[in-house]
């Protein structure tokens, strides 16, 4: 039992002393997951709004496929990206495997169906009324999408944060395409996983605490903000 307490003590020491390695890892985690979430959001929010409002053939089947793909396991995404980017793969010439760029690509693909699905569902349920009013006031297709995004921005923000949380807490995809290389592609989750298999707990605990803290802060911010309205 002592080593657990010892682990916590060492963990706090690492955090308080602003240990460079720990904070580099945290920074990279935030950078990779934030970038991935932003890229996916920029594409999927307008697209999801558009698809949710539009009536088209096979919409029901489309919904079902989309909702299913929202929970695609991260290791599958990692595997697909690794195969595509490996030197022998179709995109091998880009030399991206085992770089932060590859991690961003993998996480972008991971959260894309999630953001698209959540946005689509929101737009399908709540967008019709906004579309009606917008149309009657002379808004064109593009205006309607912008209007719907602005009207639903709080809910969309909750969706984006959900996606970000998924990205920052996943280990499968970044481990496979990043390779957990020290000072280059090591993020919070891959480090925790590695430190555990090394039996080295303090850094794992420190990073675990940071991950927990981040979830708390982000979610309470959202909670307060959405509670205001």
């Amino acid at each position: 039992m002592d080593y657990i307490l010892e682990g916590f003590r060492e963990a706090l020491k690492l955090l308080i002393s602003f240990d460079k390695e720990v904070y580099d890892i945290i920074t990279l985690s935030l950078f990779v997951s934030t970038t991935a979430t932003i890229i996916a959001s920029l594409i999927c929010i307008p697209l999801g709004i558009h698809l949710g409002l539009k009536e088209f053939k096979g919409k029901r089947a489309f919904s079902r496929i989309l909702y299913t793909s929202m929970s695609v396991p991260s290791v599958i995404v990692g595997l697909v990206v690794a195969i595509a980017l490996s030197r022998r793969g179709p995109l091998g010439g880009l030399n991206l495997l085992y770089t932060p760029k590859a991690m961003i690509i993998a996480q972008t693909l991971l959260v894309t169906p999630l953001i698209l699905g959540l946005t689509y569902s929101l737009s399908k349920n709540r967008g019709k009324e906004i579309e009606k009013v917008g149309t009657s006031l002379g808004a064109g297709r593009g205006d309607i999408i912008v209007l719907t995004i602005k009207e639903l921005k709080l809910d969309l923000l909750v969706n984006v944060v959900t996606a970000f949380s998924r990205a920052i807490s996943e280990v499968g995809a970044v481990m496979i395409v990043g390779g957990n290389i020290k000072n280059r592609t090591r993020v919070i989750t891959t480090t925790i996983s590695m430190m555990n298999s090394m039996g080295d707990y303090p850094m794992a605990i420190a990073l675990g605490l940071v991950l927990l803290l981040m979830s708390f802060v982000i979610n309470s911010l959202i909670y307060t903000y959405s509670g205001e309205d």
Binding site: D155, V161, T162, S215, N219, S220, I222, Y223, G227
Partner: peptide
């Protein structure tokens, strides 16, 4: 929305 945000937070923590 409160409910949604709260459940998402709890879910995340739980996960």
């Amino acid at each position: 929305k409160r409910f949604l945000a709260l459940s998402i937070s709890i879910l995340l923590l739980f996960t």
